[in-house]
């Protein structure tokens, strides 16, 4: 297994500019509270207790966030929302979500260039290097539960992959707030055992049943096919330090924060061999700094307060790189091969 470190100039303020981000978060918080307290009316919105998909045990309540109860698995230290809505309810909610529309129409438009530069461009390079290394003859790339249609277009425009599709289990497409061109749309059944490269960008943290999704991933991959996955981990610096005070912890988008241990075992159990598991996140240290600055009453963390007051940019920079090197950043990426 290997671990990758990225050195670039990604800044949080570029991809989450204020005050727009605060506005987006306020809408999110409101919706989150209403879905967890039951005041949003959708079908099957019943909340069900959720066991750790890695260990099979009920996790232990740790903190509340925006109406959701976060619990920690005592065995593998993953952070899981429980009880939680089922996938259907989540999908139904997303179609109606005001936060989702705000994201699409306002936020994404305002940060498009920064995301293009800071996220999509490196992501495309990454996919190309995966193709070069592990699947030079890859032809079918499927992006499961696509969030960014523009990224799909960039993937097509690269001319490297004959077939690029967006896999959406929650058809019909017309109802989705997602501008995917018709020729790129597909349902999972169309690609069973046919996908050369399957991408799950920020998916397993926001689905109701992540174990099921990994199982489906295996069914979708052709023999020797490659699974590419990004997610957020509870082992990362940001969540280790801030827990429920982590500023980007939105229960509807981050329902499952697996520890690195748990993620490794889950992917293995689903029938994949992990080729790379990295945490190339670049924002943990900056996020913690910002949180400590804006919330002087946050308990503990006196070592870090001193650190941010006195140690300077070089120390912060080397810390972030250390976190990346030793899989301690919160942003995780995985490349695995179907066995």
């Amino acid at each position: 297994m290997k671990a990758v470190v990225l050195r670039d100039d990604l800044r949080e303020a570029d991809i989450r500019p204020e005050p727009l981000y605060a506005e987006y978060k306020a809408i999110l918080e409101n919706e989150s509270r209403r879905i967890f307290d039951g005041s949003i009316r959708i079908e099957n919105r019943e909340l069900l207790p959720f066991d750790c998909p890695n260990c099979g045990k009920a996790p232990v309540a740790e903190f509340e966030r925006w109406g959701a109860q976060y619990c920690r698995c005592a065995t593998c230290a993953s952070l899981l929302v429980s009880p939680r809505p089922g996938q259907e309810a989540l999908d139904a909610f997303r179609r109606e979500s005001r936060a989702g529309r705000f994201w699409e129409q306002t936020f994404a438009a305002a940060t498009g260039a920064a995301r293009e530069h800071g996220i999509f461009r490196p992501r495309l390079q990454w996919l190309l290097s995966i193709k070069d290394r592990y699947g030079p003859r890859a032809s079918v790339v499927a992006d499961y539960r696509s969030k960014y249609p523009t990224f799909l277009e960039a993937l097509c425009d690269s001319g490297e992959f004959p077939q690029v599709v967006s896999l959406q289990p929650e058809a019909p497409w017309e109802k989705l707030p997602l501008a995917v061109r018709p020729e790129r749309r597909a349902g999972p059944e169309a690609l069973l055992h046919r996908t050369d490269i399957l991408t799950l960008f920020e998916v397993i943290e926001r689905v109701s049943n992540p174990g099921e999704v990994l199982h489906l991933a295996r069914e979708l991959c052709a023999p020797g096919g490659v699974l590419v996955l990004t997610t957020t981990s509870s082992s990362g610096f940001e969540y280790q330090l801030l827990g429920g005070s982590a500023p980007n912890l939105n229960p509807l988008d981050r329902m499952n924060l697996f520890s690195i241990d748990a993620l490794t075992r889950l992917i293995g159990k689903a029938g994949f061999e992990i080729l790379e598991l990295s945490t190339p996140g670049r924002l943990d240290v900056a996020t913690v700094r910002k949180t400590l600055e804006s919330d002087p009453d946050l308990p503990g963390l006196s070592f870090w307060r001193y650190f941010f007051r006195h140690c300077g940019e070089d120390a912060e920079h080397t810390l972030q790189e250390f976190l990346q090197q030793y899989r301690l950043s919160s942003h995780v990426r995985v490349v695995a091969r179907r066995q």
């Binding site: 690195i260 241990d261 070592f303 650190f307 006195h310 140690c311 300077g312 070089d314 120390a315 080397t318 810390l319 250390f322 090197q325 030793y326």
Partner: peptide, 20 residues
């Protein structure tokens, strides 16, 4: 629990280097 020897060594070196 999970850190390798090298990881812990590098962390200590980082602490020393930054006055910590």
């Amino acid at each position: 629990r999970n850190g390798s020897e090298r990881c812990k060594r590098e962390f200590q070196a980082w602490l020393s280097r930054h006055g910590l």
